[in-house]
C-alpha cells in the first residue's frame, strides 16, 4: 500500500498506517525493541503519557523536517511521521531516563511482592527486574494508605498504585458511571471513591485486569494462591452481557480465578462482565478451549510448559539482528 509510512526504530524499518503511535509501530516489529508501557492501554482512549517508562529518542523528526526532537518523547502518545527515526534500546540516554523513571516509580512502592497477589503477572515487577537498580537510594518513610474495600469483590491497596489512570479510563469508557477517580494532588494523589462509595457495576471487575500492579485485586482470589502455581486455561461461555471469552486459572481441579484473556503486552483482549468473573467458578459453567498461551519468559509458564524459548522476532530474523546491532554500535561510538 502506498499510503503507509516508513519509520525506523533502532535500525529496524517498519511500514505502518498514518496515525499509528511510535509504541504501536514498535509492537508491530515486536521483540526487545518494544518500549515498556505501564499506563498506556491500547483498548482505552486517552490513556498513556503519564508513567514515562516508554520514553524514546527521536533522532530524526521526519523526512520533511529531519531535526531531532529536543526532548525524549513518550512513544505511546507520539504519532509517527514519514521517515522518522527512533532510538529505544540503542540510545544510552533513553535507558538512563527509563532507569530514572523506574526508580521514581519504586521509591514509594512498598515492594511487598512476597505477599502481593499480582506477583508473577505484575508489570512493575518485570520493569523493575529489567531496569531497576539493585538497591534503593531512597531513605525516607514511604507513603502509606489504608487498604480500602471498594465494593464486595474488589480491594484497593493504594500503597502499590502507580497512578496510571487505567482504572479511571476503564470506568469511564466501559461502565455506565464512574464512582472512583483520582483525589488529591502531587504525591498525595490517590485513587478513591468519594466517601467510600462502592464500585458496583456489571463491568467494574475489569479494573482489576487493567491495573498493572497489585493495587486493585480480586477479593475472591486474594491470598488463595501464587499465580505461578495455577494453570491458565482458555474457555468461553454463552454470556448475555459480555463476550464470554475468559481465562480460567486452575489449581488442581478447582477454578480459583477467572480473568479476561490477555495478549502478549498484558492487555485485555475483551472486557468481561462481573458474572463471568466472580460467579462462574465451576468447570461445568464453561466450555474449555485449551491451555492459554503464556509468554515463555513469564514466571507463570515456568511450571507447566517448555521453558526458555528464544525471544521473538529479533532473535529469529538474522537481518533484524544485524540492523539492530549496527544501530547500536553506531550510537555507542558517538
Amino acid at each position: 500500500m502506498s499510503d503507509k509510512i516508513k519509520i525506523t526504530i533502532d535500525g529496524v524499518v517498519v511500514e505502518v498506517e498514518p496515525g499509528t503511535t511510535v509504541l504501536n509501530a514498535a509492537r508491530q516489529i515486536g521483540g526487545n525493541i518494544v518500549p515498556p508501557a505501564m499506563c498506556y492501554y491500547s483498548k482505552l482512549e486517552e490513556s498513556g503519557g503519564k508513567c514515562r517508562t516508554c520514553l524514546v529518542k527521536v533522532s530524526k523528526g521526519s523526512e520533511k523536517d529531519p531535526r531531532p526532537m529536543p526532548k525524549l518523547v513518550a512513544s505511546c502518545r507520539t504519532t509517527v511521521m514519514d521517515g522518522m527515526e527512533v532510538q529505544n534500546i540503542t540510545s544510552p540516554e533513553v535507558i538512563e531516563a527509563r532507569k530514572g523513571v523506574v526508580e521514581m516509580l519504586l521509591i514509594n512502592h512498598p515492594l511487598d511482592c512476597p505477599i502481593c497477589d499480582q506477583a508473577g503477572e505484575c508489570h512493575l515487577q518485570d520493569l523493575g527486574f529489567e531496569h531497576g537498580a539493585a538497591q534503593t537510594r531512597y531513605e525516607f518513610k514511604r507513603r502509606t494508605f489504608e487498604r480500602v474495600d471498594i465494593g464486595d469483590k474488589i480491594q484497593l491497596h493504594m500503597n502499590r498504585c502507580i497512578l496510571c489512570y487505567r482504572c479511571v479510563f476503564t470506568a469511564n469508557q466501559i461502565t455506565d458511571n464512574r464512582v472512583h477517580g483520582v483525589l488529591g494532588r502531587g504525591d498525595a494523589s490517590e485513587i478513591g471513591t468519594y466517601i467510600q462509595q462502592a464500585v458496583d457495576n456489571d463491568f467494574s471487575g475489569n479494573v482489576i485486569d487493567v491495573c498493572p500492579v497489585g493495587a486493585l485485586t480480586d477479593k475472591t482470589f486474594r491470598f488463595k494462591n501464587r499465580v505461578w502455581f495455577t494453570k491458565p486455561v482458555d474457555a468461553h461461555r454463552d454470556c448475555p452481557t459480555c463476550s464470554g471469552n475468559v481465562t480460567l486459572w486452575y489449581k488442581g481441579e478447582e477454578v480459583i480465578r477467572v480473568t479476561a484473556r490477555k495478549d502478549q503486552y498484558g492487555e485485555v483482549e475483551n472486557f468481561i462482565c462481573n458474572t463471568c468473573r466472580f460467579d462462574k467458578k465451576a468447570t461445568s459453567d464453561w466450555e474449555i478451549e485449551g491451555p492459554s498461551k503464556v509468554r515463555h519468559t513469564s514466571v507463570i509458564s515456568s511450571n507447566h510448559y517448555d521453558t526458555m524459548q528464544p525471544l521473538p522476532v529479533i532473535q529469529q530474523k538474522p537481518a533484524l539482528i544485524i540492523a539492530n546491532q549496527e544501530q547500536f554500535q553506531k550510537t555507542s561510538k558517538q
Binding site: K50, M104, I107, F140, D187, S189
Partner: peptide
Amino acid sequence: YHHESCGQCSPCREGTGWMEK
C-alpha cells in the same frame, strides 16, 4: 514544587518530594 506537582506523571510526582526531603 513538591506541594504543587499535579501528580500525573511519575518523575515529577515522586521526584519533587524526594528532592524536598
